[in-house]
């Protein structure tokens, strides 16, 4: 009975997720030339990944983005979730504000990314403000087509992926615990540090896993908003794919996959995801 109900899900994931990854894994050992790929068992593609000096640059760029975005989204997501859960008094307001936060999530990421262009460009709104306030004599060039723009777009698109699981965790904290801590004389800061933060860490972990993997897996935001100047690991793979160099792209994919799985595994050691969702 249970298996029949779960079978469609299992089937789709098997055909369109597991099998393709197996293909990627297998092809990572293949030989290739400009025309086609040839079955083989070569470790050359991996050797290239590990010996190339570019690899380290790509990974350090990817981690740089991931760490900065993770730090910002945790801070912003936590404050937003905390405000909604513990400062908004009525349920109607809480739901209303939460919906307001969630709406942009349901609109196109591509468009949300593009929407930063008229904002950050040389003649964009931010520069107009900067010039009008005489903060700078010339327009700021670092705003668009830069790491700054990439990180702004990541934060814009991913913060709700962090905030939503944190809201979910916080909403399960018994309000009597907060009253009990206030009874004990704890200040708001102490309550956040000693009660709220430890009890919402599962949400933080789940959000971190989502934000981290989305940042590490991205290639189009970094491409468009850095103006092609920056590239992460996946950007390089996308480039190899467009050149039809499938086996090396597959090898790079497998390596990144292992890195991602290890990172997520570490995060999920802290959290029981299923329990977190069902509670």
């Amino acid at each position: 009975m249970s298996w029949m109900q779960a079978a469609p899900l299992a089937l789709v994931l098997l055909v369109f997720f597991v099998a393709p990854l197996v293909f990627v894994f297998v092809v990572s050992f293949f030989d290739y030339d400009r025309l086609a790929i040839y079955p083989a068992f070569l470790l050359d593609n991996y050797a290239d990944v590990f010996t190339s000096s570019i690899t380290l640059q790509l990974y350090s760029k990817t981690f740089e983005y991931a760490v900065i975005v993770e730090a910002i989204t945790v801070a912003v997501g936590f404050l937003v979730a905390y405000f909604l859960t513990f400062h908004v008094r009525t349920t109607a307001w809480r739901i209303g504000l939460l919906v307001a936060c969630t709406i942009p999530f349901f609109t196109s990421n591509m468009i949300r990314m593009i929407s930063w262009m008229p904002f950050l460009g040389r003649e964009g709104i931010l520069n107009d403000v900067v010039l009008a306030m005489r903060l700078s004599k010339t327009p700021l060039d670092f705003l668009l087509f830069s790491d700054f723009a990439v990180i702004v777009a990541y934060v814009h698109i991913l913060t709700m992926m962090m905030a939503a699981p944190i809201v979910n965790s916080m909403s399960k904290i018994d309000k009597a615990l907060i009253s009990a801590a206030r009874d004990a004389g704890a200040s708001e800061f102490q309550i956040v540090r000693d009660i709220v933060l430890p009890l919402s860490r599962t949400g933080v972990a789940l959000g971190s896993a989502l934000v981290l993997t989305q940042t590490m897996g991205d290639y189009f935001i970094v491409h468009v908003l850095s103006g092609g100047k920056s590239a992460g690991v996946v950007s390089a793979i996308a480039t190899q794919l467009s050149a039809f160099e499938y086996p090396p792209a597959a090898a790079s994919s497998v390596v990144l996959l292992v890195v991602v799985v290890v990172l997520v595994g570490v995060i999920f050691r802290v959290v029981d995801v299923r329990k977190e969702l069902a509670g």
Binding site: D174, A176, L177, S179, A180, A181, D183, D194, I195, P198, L199
Partner: peptide, 12 residues
């Protein structure tokens, strides 16, 4: 000082 209905012990 209050003792809460379901005790409200800090679970962690």
């Amino acid at each position: 000082s209050m003792m809460f209905q379901n005790y409200a012990l800090f679970p962690h």
